[in-house]
Simulated assay, not measured.
Amino acid sequence: MGAVTERRHRPSAQARRAALLRATVEVAAAEGVAGITHRAVTERAGLPLATVSYFFDSIGALIEEALRDSVAADAAVQEELAEALAEAHSSPEEVVAAFTPAVAPRFPDTLAMLEAYLHAARHPEFRDAVADALAMSRQVSAAAVRAAGAPDPEAVAPAFAAVAHGFALHELAVPGSVPPEYFDSAFRALFLGFLLDAGHVDLAMELRRQPAPEA
C-alpha cells in the first residue's frame, strides 16, 4: 500500500478507513468480489468516491486488507475461546461443544470469505491473501484441538477447518439446512477418528462414552 498523508492517523481518518474495510466485506457478501468497485464501496460506506484512492493504491489492495481484517477479527474471537477452554482444562467433549457454535457461519463475514476463496481460484494474484486466511483458520482449529488435549493438533487442523467451511457454505446457500447438531456430530466423529488413527485409543474411548449434547 502506498504512502498517505498524516491525516490517515487521525481518528476521523481511521474511522473512514475502517468504514471502507467493513463496506468492502458487505459488498463482497452481497455482490461477490467482482462487485467490489470504488463506487460500490464508497456508496455503502457513505463516503466520497475518492476515499478509496486516498487510503489504498488499488481496489485489489482494499480487498486484501478487508479480507485480512475480517479474518483476523474472527480468529481473535475463536482463539480467545480456545485459550479459555485450555485454561479450564476442558474435556474433549466440552471443546467440541464449544467449538461448534464458534464456527457457525456469520453474515456477511463468512459469505465474503467464501467469495474470496472463489475469487482466488480464478485470480492467482489474490491467492497470497487467501492463503493467509486459510492458515489462520487452521491455527484456530489447532488451538481448539490442542485445548482438548490431543497431540499433534496441526495434523488434524486442516480437516477441522475444511469441515467448518463446507458446512458454512451449505448453511449460507440454504439457511436452516445444517442444524447445530450436524456440526457437533461431524466434529466429534472427526476428533474420534483422529485420536484412533494416532493410537490414542483410551482418550478416544473416553470421549466416545460421553453422551453428545442435546440439540
Rank of each mutant, 00 (worst) to 15 (best):
A19E: 04
T42V: 11
A131R: 14
E26P: 13
V25E: 11
E31S: 15
A162R: 05
L192M: 10
S185I: 14
P213G: 04
A112L: 00
S53E: 11
L49R: 13
R68M: 08
V27F: 11
Q139S: 09
G166K: 10
V156M: 02
P92I: 02
T110V: 06
R68A: 10
Y54S: 13
A30P: 15
Q14D: 07
D109Y: 00
A144L: 03
E93P: 02
F194I: 00
A168F: 03
A135G: 11
P180G: 05
A173G: 15
S141R: 02
P211V: 03
F56A: 11
F183H: 14
V33M: 14
A144C: 08
R209M: 01
L67K: 08
S53D: 14
V77G: 02
A98T: 06
A150G: 05
A75C: 04
A88D: 10
V71Q: 01
P153A: 04
A131V: 13
V33L: 15
A29I: 12
A19Y: 04
S141L: 05
H170S: 15
A28W: 13
E87H: 02
R8G: 03
A18Y: 09
P175A: 12
E94Y: 01
S53N: 14
E83H: 02
Q78V: 05
E6T: 13
V156H: 03
R44G: 06
S91T: 10
F194W: 13
V52I: 09
E94G: 01
R146D: 07
A168T: 08
A143Q: 05
A15N: 07
T51S: 08
D57F: 08
F99H: 07
P11Q: 09
R209S: 02
P180A: 07
A84E: 13
S177W: 15
A133D: 05
E65D: 12
E65I: 06
A34P: 15
T24S: 12
M1E: 05
T24H: 10
R68D: 14
T5G: 15
E94Q: 08
A150Q: 03
R138S: 05
L195S: 01
R188I: 06
R10I: 13
L114A: 06
A28T: 11
A215H: 08
E206I: 00
F187C: 02
I36V: 14
D197S: 10
F160Q: 08
M1Q: 13
V71D: 07
P180N: 07
V4Y: 13
E181F: 14
R22L: 12
L207Q: 03
A144Q: 02
G35Y: 14
R122P: 09
P92W: 01
A84S: 04
H165F: 10
P105T: 00
Q14R: 12
A104Y: 00
H123E: 11
E83T: 09
V96C: 03
V130D: 03
